[in-house]
Write a protein that binds this DNA or RNA. Sequence first.
DNA 1: TTATATTCAGACTATTTAGTCTGAATATAA
DNA 2: TTATATTCAGACTAAATAGTCTGAATATAA
Lengths: 146, 146
Amino acid sequence: MSLIFSRQCEYALQAVIYLALNKNGSHVPIKDLTRKLKIPYHFLGKIMQDLTRKGLLVSEKGPRGGFALAMPACDITLFHIVDAIDGADFTRTCVMGFPECSGKKPCSVHGQWASLRDGIYAMLVSKNIEELSRTMQKPGYPGVLP
Amino acid sequence: MSLIFSRQCEYALQAVIYLALNKNGSHVPIKDLTRKLKIPYHFLGKIMQDLTRKGLLVSEKGPRGGFALAMPACDITLFHIVDAIDGADFTRTCVMGFPECSGKKPCSVHGQWASLRDGIYAMLVSKNIEELSRTMQKPGYPGVLP
DNA sequence: TTATATTCAGACTATTTAGTCTGAATATAA
DNA sequence: TTATATTCAGACTAAATAGTCTGAATATAA
Ligand code: SF4
Ligand code: SF4
C-alpha cells in the first residue's frame, strides 16, 4: 500500500468532522459514530480516547455522555489531527527514504518534492474542520438528505 | 507513521538509482548494493527479484552475475518503480479515506488535494532515473568523492 | 438506590509489512 | 570438472499496525 495517512488517522479525521456537524453542543457516543462512519467500535474508541488525551476532544461518561470537540471547529485544522495521530515526519524526511541526506547537494527531485510537500502541509493547516464539515454532504449526515 | 511510499518501495528506488550509476554495462550483485545502500541483504534480494519479474531489471546468476537495468535509465521513471512495488492507488482514493466518495459533490479539500496529487503523479512520471542518478551526489557512489 | 449507558485501561488476537534463513539452480573461472 | 559466486524460491520469524474483548470507573435517570 502507499497511503498518505495511516488508517487510524483517516478514522480520526472522519470522526472529528462528524463531531463538528453536531452543532447543538451535546456529546456524541462512539456507538453513533461507529454506525454512521462504519468504523470498528472498539478501535474507534481507542482513537477517540487518544484525541481526548491530546486535548482535541472532551469526553463525558455515562448516559448522555460521549465525545465533543474541545474547541470551536474553526480552530481545529486537519494538521492538528494528522499531527496528533501520525506525526509530521513527512514534512522532514526524504521521499525516497535516503537516510541522512541533508539535501545540501540536492538531487533533481528534491526541489520539486519540497514544494509539493509544502503544498500538502499548507493544505493541512489551512483547512479547518468547520469549513470542511460544512461542505461534507454525505448521506445520513446531519443536515443532509438521504 | 505516515509515509508516502512503503519501505520496500524506497529501497527499490534507491537500488535502481544505484544501478543506473553503473555505466559500464556490468551486473551489480546484491552484495554490493546492500553494502552501499545499507539495506538488509535478503530483503533487498526479494525486491530485486520482484523488479526483475516486473521487467524493469535483468539478472545473471553465478560469478560476475547480478542485476542491471533492463532498459536505458532515461526510459525508467520514478513512477515505473513506484507502480511496480506499491501500485498507484493514491492517485484514485480519498485522502481522508472516506469510502465510496465519488467526489461528485466535492468537499472543500477535494480540489486542493486533487491538484497536489496530480502534482505528485506528474513528478513521478517526469523524473527519469538517468537524470536523477546523475544529480545524486552521495559519498561512496560511483563518480563521487568520499 | 439501582439499573443503565457510557468512557476508559489494558490485555489480547489478527493482519500486514519487514526482515531472516536455508538450500536448490546455475553460471563462471580455475 | 570442481570450487565458487551468484540468483532464486519458499518457508520461516519479527515488528508494526489494525482490530477485539473484558471488565472497571463513572455519570445519568428512573
Ligand atoms: S536531495 Fe534527493 S535524496 Fe537527498 S533528501 Fe532531497 S530528495 Fe532525498
Ligand atoms: S469530496 Fe472530500 S471526502 Fe469525497 S473523495 Fe473528495 S476529498 Fe474525499
